[in-house]
Nucleic acid binder design. Structure first.
Length: 573
RNA sequence: CGGGGUGUAGCGCAGUUUGGUAGCGCAUCUGGUUUGGGACCAGAGGGUCGCGGGUUCAAAUCCUGCCACCCCGACCA
């Protein structure tokens, strides 16, 4: 490709709408443009990178005998009602009606559609296992789209679905997928961690997330350096020991005027935060629920949601009015004793061991001390309800956990029988008996992966694409294309590289050298051959993006230099 | 959806407090001089000042309703 014909509107200045490096650089390098919030157009250079990532995914999926299909983005409401997700997905789903008023959605994911497709054809165990995937546009009306391609409302995902005869076979398919995903992200050059995930709206089974490490990531992960335990912060099991407490203390009401927060309480009573128990009120659908966690810890809302069995969007913090109605007092004095009748009280398992805690009295300006679980009140003991923090003990080996941040680029789920049951997907086994199909669902965010790569490969000048995903491998920069000798040498190297199958652009634009160099570095071509003033002596310059030292070589050796670099970094065309 | 902020030329911004009919830098076009790290000189084009309503002789500026976009919180590939 000749650059003077290339549509690559690079920007000198950072668009004010972009904050993250990947977002800024994608815009500045002329790779994407925003249409509306969370919806982007891919320009030629961006599209080339996109296709590279897509192709890597495709190859690795094909490699494990998953077969590519293409489903519609537009889906009928009926299938979603069968699975119960028409309401569960909530406002995240883009919904639309046809001219007759029939309801549809733009697919946020495709479990229903794949299951439905298969159920009409699948008859026998002999047809299993089956693994299908597609690379297709997904729609999710995010509450808050942001960070460019990282949280978009329209994005491209590779989604795969596996169908197996039993649980063991499903787990085998899961392992296969795991391996393919690891290879995909390795080939993309990403530094990533594989962590246990929460299944969320997808199902209740085992799941893992592939997290590309990045300081700008939205996903927090807890992991152990001593063993291989790793989980998302929401999933990580919290080890929290309650010290033996004196149970002889009597419950007493203490006046605590205006003392509401844990910090204020610590000062007032002069005891550590762990002596208190927070009673938090939430509204789930239209029921108010109270949750108790130790005063020095945060509640994990995901764990609460799982305990309640409601959907994410159905849970919200109770309003001030709801709190007053439930407790009969101002916000800040809620406690387990004297709550309005009928309010569910969930209790973290550790709270249930406390025999001398301080809680709100459900009376404005009063707290209760010396409260013992079991003696003074009881609730539903709900296991672990806490958010993990750095330094918590590893639930496997007991060593302290580390916390890191990253971008979720892929995930794998063991769906089990969730969809085959709700959508009635069965096969006949060897004995002619009907059995439900064991399913798995596996996603990779293609466009998001592209952004995640940039987050790991950039410097102050621009992007530094790994060769495997670079829009082109080499840029041949002709410093002054009006000089016949330079242009001639540049054209020859360009043609020779092309002949050898190298993806190459020729910068033949009538721009000053600085503009060309800056554009090349911004866009992030991995290799640069500069044809300048020494061209008349048959010399050119060979450089690698990200390395300052340039090497003067004979023009005839340029192609060789490119290939020896390929060899050096283990890249194959 | 709650809280905060912004909307003026393709991009980045000033002008709004104190109403008087729109400006700067970059980019674009023309001519010339330059030519290895975002050139210089001269000239030119480009704006429903987010949209609607109101106040006023007069509105980018004041009032009001709406919209869009960005940031902070809860969701996910």
């Amino acid at each position: 490709m000749r650059m003077n014909r290339m549509y690559m509107p690079t920007l000198r200045e950072v668009p004010s709408e972009a904050e993250l490096p990947s977002h800024q650089l994608l815009l500045r390098a002329g790779m994407i443009r925003k249409l509306v919030a969370g919806v982007y157009s891919f320009l030629p250079l961006g599209h080339r990178v996109f296709k590279k990532v897509e192709q890597i995914v495709r190859e690795e999926m094909d490699n494990i005998d998953s077969q590519e299909v293409l489903m519609s983005a537009i889906q009928p409401k009926e299938l979603w009602e069968e699975s119960g997700r028409w309401s569960k997905f909530g406002p995240e789903m883009f919904r639309l009606k046809d001219r007759n008023g029939r309801d549809f959605c733009l697919g946020p994911t495709h479990e229903e559609i794949f299951t439905d497709l298969i159920k009409n054809e699948l008859k026998s165990y002999k047809q299993l296992p089956l693994s299908l995937y597609q690379i297709q546009t997904k729609y999710r009306d995010e509450k808050r789209p942001r960070f460019g391609l990282i949280r978009a409302r329209e994005f491209v995902m590779k989604d795969a679905y596996t169908f197996d005869v039993d649980e063991a076979a499903m787990k085998e398919a899961y392992e296969l997928m795991w391996g393919a995903y690891a290879r995909v992200f390795e080939r993309c050059g990403l530094k990533f961690k594989i962590v246990q995930g929460d299944a969320g709206a997808m199902g209740d089974g085992v799941s893992h997330e592939f997290i590309a490490l990045s300081e700008y990531g939205e996903s927090f992960i807890a992991y152990c350096d001593s063993c291989d335990y790793a989980a998302t912060d929401e999933t990580a099991q919290v080890v929290y020991e309650v010290a033996e407490q004196d149970s002889s203390a009597e419950m007493q009401k203490v006046s605590t005027p205006g003392v509401k927060t844990i910090e204020e309480l610590e000062k007032f009573f002069n005891v550590p935060a762990s002596a208190f128990v927070k009673t938090l009120l939430f509204k789930a659908v239209d029921e108010v629920v109270a949750v108790m966690v130790p005063g020095d810890r945060e509640l994990n809302e995901i764990k609460l949601i799982n305990a309640l069995g409601c959907a994410e969007h159905e849970l919200e913090i109770a309003s001030e009015e709801d709190v007053k109605d439930a407790t009969g007092c101002d916000v800040g004095f809620a406690g387990p004793i004297g709550l309005k009748k009928g309010i569910r009280l969930l209790v973290d398992e550790r709270v249930a061991k406390m025999t001398n805690m301080i809680v709100g009295a459900n009376e404005t300006d009063f707290h209760l001390t010396g409260v013992a679980y079991g003696r003074d009140f009881e609730g539903e003991v709900s296991g672990d309800m806490l958010m993990v923090v750095e330094g918590d003990s590893c639930p496997v080996c007991g060593k302290p956990l580390s916390i890191d941040k990253g971008i979720e680029v892929g995930n794998i789920f063991q769906l089990g029988l969730k969809y085959s049951k709700s959508l009635n997907l069965q096969y006949l086994d060897e004995n002619g008996k009907s059995q439900y199909v064991w399913m798995g669902s596996h996603g990779i965010g293609i466009s998001r992966t592209m952004a995640a790569i940039i987050e790991q490969y950039y410097d102050e000048k621009g992007i530094m694409w790994p060769l495997a995903v670079a829009p082109y491998h080499v840029i041949v920069t002709v410093v002054d294309p009006k000089k016949a000798d330079q242009l001639e040498v540049g054209e020859k190297i360009y043609a020779d590289l092309k002949k050898r199958g190298v993806e190459v652009v020729l910068d033949d634009r009538k721009e000053r050298a600085g503009v060309k160099f800056n554009d090349a570095e911004l866009i992030g071509f991995p290799l640069r051959v500069t044809v300048g003033r020494d061209a008349k002596d048959g010399l050119v310059e060979f450089g690698v993006r990200g390395k300052d030292d340039k090497e003067k070589i004979e023009a005839d050796k340029a192609v060789e230099a490119v290939f020896s670099h390929f060899e050096e970094v283990g890249f194959e065309l």
